[in-house]
Write a protein that binds this DNA or RNA. Structure first.
Lengths: 224, 224
DNA sequence: ACGATGCTTCGGCTAACATCGAAGCATGAA
DNA sequence: TTCATGCTTCGATGTTAGCCGAAGCATCGT
């Protein structure tokens, strides 16, 4: 049955990651859902059998996308019902809470802190966001230069946007991706504010005590 | 999450039993699902917590009904997706053939007749359909004005499309939604061709004898 | 050819949850 | 009151399915 496919948290995470209409590879989806590639493979096979996603082979990658707009429509409907009861997902993937707090998404910061950072940037007009698209404002450029020593020319890249909104699977909100997102994460590492967990393959990002303080000073929302 | 609620077979059976809009007691639902009352009670509590059904106490019975038409709509969508992959649940009950024949989906006509109508419109170039999107042709506008006294300006709405394809759960095909779908259903009612079933909450649409004839004359496919 | 990368299959472990028997509350009827 | 009916709660059981490690293909890059 279709509903049971969507019912599983890991699969639901994958599907919502696909809701923007773009196709993602199996491993990207695994990351989005916070599970290993093996598990993701099993899930994707089921989703495919259920007609919810369609694969497209490209080299050694398999890109998955939602089958069509009917699927997207039904998913939206379900999300609508869920939102109505305030029954928004609390129960995320199987992994530890540290992963929810701060983690690497490709090469930029994700998790609670990642979302918080974008929120802060947006609130203070350092970036302007329209759906998926984010652009850096003049104030934003000054801010980056002053506090993080990041200059606009460091962010230029032929095939990658400077800013981009990336859907956060644990928070269900956007965090900052693109070359800027990557540059900021790299800067945090250089400043010894944070570092990827030592465990090989782990996506957890550990903040140092001073790093957490500095981060909160720049992007805090007063909650912690 | 809502989807996992619908995902369980026993709960899905209960929900489909409620799809006709009538309210059923807990024990009736248990029987529909083929489980004991204890188990049903647990399921119903979850469905209620998820906002899918609402209870109504009456004496020592508890009547359950679907919360509203939004829920019914989403369930239709899910059933539509399921039907598409051939993974149809057998449970759809020969109990209510009337529901399959003609019913209300939000505010427009669904079921066999709804699908038949859109087929006919498409075949005669009164509408043009591209996936989800449907647009009314010039001939279509003339047709509506002549036979149903529906003019284009009656269909304008700031936030709702005039035409839209809606997946039908009993047939595995599209029927016509949008303001046009609603307007046509309303017109059928005004012309006394059809009326919603008198049973409170029922979604069955009953056609009068003359109504059926007129409808067949306009949208018939020769099969009945 | 060789190794690296992306994805899949297999096997075993574990947690979640549907299920039912038995007992506990209600409500309605005698 | 006493009994019967409808439903719920509790406790125990068993199956399901998600999860990951290890190994197996396939494809790309050198």
């Amino acid at each position: 049955m279709v509903a049971s496919l969507v019912g599983d948290p890991a699969r639901a995470n994958m599907l919502t990651a696909l809701m923007n209409g773009r196709a993602l590879t199996a491993s990207e989806l695994a990351q989005e859902a916070g599970i290993t590639p093996q598990t993701a493979s099993s899930h994707l096979a089921k989703l495919e059998a259920g007609g919810l996603v369609e694969p497209e082979k490209q080299g050694r990658h398999r890109y998955y996308r939602l089958t069509d707009d009917d699927v997207a429509g039904v998913l939206e409907g379900l999300a609508g019902l869920a939102a109505r009861t305030g029954h928004m997902r609390v129960r995320t993937g199987p992994k530890d809470p540290a992963l929810r707090r701060a983690r690497i998404c490709y090469d930029h910061l994700a998790g609670d802190l990642g979302v918080q950072m974008l929120d802060s940037l947006r609130e203070r007009n350092l970036v302007r966001q329209k759906k998926q698209d984010i652009e850096l404002t003049a104030e934003g450029e000054r801010f980056l230069a002053k506090h993080l020593q990041i200059s606009p020319d460091m962010l230029a890249h032929p095939r990658r946007p400077v800013c981009k909104a990336c859907l956060d699977w644990s928070e269900r909100r956007h965090h900052l991706a693109g070359t800027l997102g990557a540059a900021m994460m790299q800067r945090f590492a250089e400043l010894k504010w944070a570092a990827r967990d030592a465990t090989p393959g782990s996506r957890v990002v550990n903040f140092t005590r001073t790093g957490e303080k500095q981060f909160a000073a720049l992007f805090g929302n007063g909650k912690d």
